[in-house]
Simulated assay, not measured.
Amino acid sequence: MEYASLPPGLLTTRLAAKAAGVEPATIRDWVRRGILQRAGGSPRRPYYTVQDVTAAKMAAKPNSARTRRANVHPA
């Protein structure tokens, strides 16, 4: 069940994912990793600010190629 009405500037997980061009699971992962902070709601129905979602989208996120290169030590 979605919120009937959120104040302007706030997004549900689904809307935050749409705004960032990612899946809702990615939004939850960003929260778990500390890239995105919840702005309120409940544990099962959090919401986020538009500014925080935009900042999280722009934040540098490690990927497997970058991680592998960083862990390779020259002999």
Rank of each mutant, 00 (worst) to 15 (best):
R38I: 11
G40A: 07
L15Q: 06
A75W: 11
P43Y: 10
M58W: 04
A55P: 07
E2F: 02
Y48Q: 00
S5M: 11
Q37P: 05
R69F: 10
N71Y: 13
R45S: 15
P43N: 11
D29W: 01
A4M: 09
R45Q: 15
A4P: 05
S5C: 07
Y3E: 08
D29K: 07
R32H: 01
A65T: 14
A39R: 03
A39I: 07
L10K: 12
P7E: 08
L15N: 05
V50K: 09
P8C: 07
R45P: 05
A4V: 10
P62F: 14
G21H: 04
A70G: 13
T54M: 00
P62G: 15
V22T: 02
A17F: 00
G40S: 08
T49G: 06
E23K: 09
P7K: 13
P7R: 11
R66H: 14
P62Y: 13
P62M: 12
S64R: 08
Y48M: 03
R44A: 15
A60K: 08
R44N: 13
G9F: 04
A17E: 01
R68T: 08
A17L: 01
G21C: 04
L15S: 06
K18L: 04
R69Q: 08
M58V: 01
V31Q: 02
A65P: 07
N71R: 15
S42P: 08
T67L: 15
P43R: 14
A25H: 01
A59K: 12
P24W: 03
V72M: 13
D52F: 05
S64D: 04
A20M: 05
A39F: 06
E2Q: 10
G41F: 06
G40W: 09
N63D: 15
G41Y: 04
L6H: 05
T49N: 08
T54L: 07
R28H: 04
A19L: 07
T12C: 03
P46A: 02
A65F: 12
M1C: 09
A25T: 04
R28N: 06
E23H: 13
P46K: 05
H73Q: 11
L10I: 06
S64P: 00
H73S: 11
R32W: 00
M1D: 12
K57S: 15
P24K: 05
G40L: 07
Q51E: 15
R14D: 05
G34C: 07
A75V: 15
P46N: 02
P74H: 13
A55F: 11
L11K: 00
V53I: 10
R38L: 10
A70F: 13
K61P: 05
Y48C: 01
A75G: 14
S5T: 13
A20H: 05
L10N: 04
E23Y: 09
T49H: 07
S5V: 12
T26A: 08
P7D: 08
R38F: 03
E2P: 07
T67P: 05
L6P: 10
A60E: 11
R69L: 10
I27A: 03
H73T: 15
M1I: 09
K61A: 13
M1Y: 11
P8T: 10
A59R: 12
P8S: 09
